[in-house]
Nucleic acid binder design. Structure first.
Length: 271
DNA sequence: CGCTGACCCTGACGGC
DNA sequence: TGCCGTCAGGGTCAGC
């Protein structure tokens, strides 16, 4: 679930009525680790703090309190749930913060590929040090991608999924953007033409923006348990459509494996 | 340097 | 019905 657009949507959801949340009254860890151990100081440090803002960098949620930057990466299956009053712990609930207002946030993550970290404000955030530009910011330009891809032999799909190149392009949107730009995923990055770099950059931006727009509904749907399907079926042109006809030329969509991940493309439309 | 495969973990799904 | 293999949207790392 946690594509960049969904992390953004989670951010917006948690940001609602942030000013009426009040201080963090209690932090509860239901286990000692997710992908990594929770910071030892986490509970003590956060209790009494107030969440001042929520932002996003790459696929990290960034909670700013008076004294700390609290990071949360959702991994593959991480999700936040907002609750009011008393609630029963559900399977795979690992973490809960309760606020003065009586509201609480519960982190659930079946596969536990997510993680959290707590950094004293003013300290450098190591997790962010080697991240490339945000895909929707102007610094991610065709000129940037073109220059960056010179002398890189890696397939273009791997290249755009490399967080040092650009953040937030996941496995689904990599395939989708390459299809939109009509670029073959296996193409060596350094062989990308200027024109293709332009098309690819605008495709990445377009695909993410479109997903961002339907992101809200995707999250609502997600809670309704069956709407995730609807979201996928409506918006994805190649992902998970192996063997099905290309919407443009009707030839069957191909599925290959690159760097251990599935890639979907049209061998006729993409060059 | 770049690529593959293993790994972290659980659940869903399809085939038999 | 149930068991088993495969795969999943993220990311890192050793090893070739």
């Amino acid at each position: 679930m946690p594509e960049l657009p969904e992390v953004e949507t989670v951010k917006l959801g948690l940001s609602k009525n942030l000013e009426t949340l009040g201080r963090i009254e209690q932090v509860k860890l239901f286990r000692k680790d997710l992908r990594f151990e929770f910071p030892k100081k986490m509970k003590n440090a956060l209790e009494g703090q107030k969440i001042l803002s929520i932002s996003r960098r790459a696929k990290y949620l960034v909670f700013e309190t008076q004294d700390y930057v609290w990071l949360c990466h959702l991994g593959m299956t991480g999700a936040w749930r907002q609750e009011t009053g008393d609630h029963q712990k559900q399977p795979h609930d690992h973490f809960r913060v309760s606020f003065e207002s009586g509201r609480s946030w519960v982190y659930r993550d079946p596969r536990r590929f997510g993680y959290m970290d707590l950094i004293k404000k003013g300290s450098s955030i190591v997790w962010f040090e080697h991240l490339g530009p945000e895909p929707l910011e102007s610094s991610f330009s065709s000129e940037y991608l073109f220059q960056k891809s010179r002398n890189k032999k890696a397939p273009i799909k791997n290249f755009i999924m490399d967080q040092k190149v650009v953040v937030g392009v996941g496995n689904i949107y990599a395939s989708e953007a390459l299809y939109m730009a009509r670029v073959k995923p296996s193409k060596a990055s350094h062989r990308l033409t200027r024109k293709q770099a332009e098309l690819l950059v605008s495709s990445i931006k377009m695909v993410l923006k479109k997903a961002l727009k339907s992101g809200g509904s995707s999250i609502r749907d997600y809670k309704n348990a069956d709407a995730e399907m609807g979201y996928f079926q409506q918006s994805l042109k190649v992902y998970d459509r192996a063997g099905k006809p290309c919407f443009s030329c009707k030839k069957p969509i191909k599925k290959i494996t690159q760097a251990g991940r599935s890639t979907f493309y049209c061998s006729n439309c993409q060059v």
